[in-house]
Design a protein around this nucleic acid. Structure first.
Lengths: 162, 162
DNA sequence: CATATATAGTTTAAGCCTAAAGCAAAAACC
DNA sequence: GGTTTTTGCTTTAGGCTTAAACTATATATG
């Protein structure tokens, strides 16, 4: 992908909601694409793997599969596959939960913890490099606006009718 | 997916760049998930299909495969598959380009145009419904900040080193 | 002109992702 | 206690996505 051509994209004169959504999608796609590229080149890993490990890094005691899937906002079955591969690579482990023979706790292994610590540091540096110039100016405001957006989106009273 | 549980997600105290990126990703995931759901339920279609048709709707004269992939910021091979399926469904056509036997122009068929017009109207209404309450307040500012972000991201001088 | 390089697009392998169906265990109900 | 419903997770089928390899055509270069 060549990111120099992105400015070919020009939005039509639509309502502000739609324009907002298109910008939102575009900015996160740009960042996502760059990060994916870096993760692959530098660490031979992917965003979904990184995301799972990040969640487990934060919740040291471990997470159940369904907690993981809620946290990452992806489907249940999706998590199964990613976790399978991380287990195969010795980066995480499934542990049975006392009192519930259906459930698993997933945790980082020592190797996984080490590997992720290193990756996370670089990852943060990349994000910083990408956003630094923007963040000097007015990141705090954008941050707050996005928070407002997120809570508006999560407000059940506004839930799009099922 | 149950969107009522999204507020379980709480970010750690990290640098503002990282926090900004996480929020950005989260807000677009919420919207993306809701729209995917609606598109599937109402029109039995997907976001990638919708995106391709939207691009072709805007560029009535048609687009070449590589133009499409730049516009949508996805890989070349990805577009091939989506276009294949849309062609099979009679919604778009591949037309040969005079003077270049490698290239194709892709265009909406009459059926595709009709179908998309209808979908686009609903799509805009959904986005509006989701974002309306937020947009009344301060969408214009957020819009401009995202534009600033996008141009900062697209600035080659800041390009993350290959 | 002949060769080299670049461009347009497809194919492939592997992973990501969803919805829906399925399985087993737990919880609720009667 | 026995039945029903719910919950936790996996499997499946099908589509999405990428990077890399590949084919064919076009362009540049000597």
């Amino acid at each position: 992908m060549n990111f120099k051509d992105i400015d070919l994209v020009q939005e039509p004169n639509s309502k502000s909601s739609l324009r907002l959504w298109i910008r939102l999608l575009k900015s996160s796609r740009i960042i996502e694409n760059k990060l994916r590229d870096k993760l692959r080149r530098e660490f031979s890993t992917t965003m979904p793997r990184f995301d799972v490990m990040a969640a487990l890094f934060r919740f040291e005691k471990g997470l159940k599969m369904n907690e993981l899937s809620k946290l990452l906002m992806v489907s249940n079955g999706n998590v199964t596959g990613i976790v399978d591969r991380l287990v195969k690579d010795g980066l995480i482990v499934r542990m049975s939960v006392a009192g519930d023979r259906r459930a698993f706790e997933v945790r980082l292994t020592k190797k996984g913890h080490q590997e992720f610590s290193h990756q996370a540091q670089q990852h943060e540096a990349w994000v910083d490099e990408m956003l630094a110039s923007f963040c000097e100016k007015d990141s705090e405001e954008l941050l707050q606006k996005l928070d407002g957006l997120i809570s508006a989106l999560s407000d059940p009273s506004l839930e799009v009718k099922k």
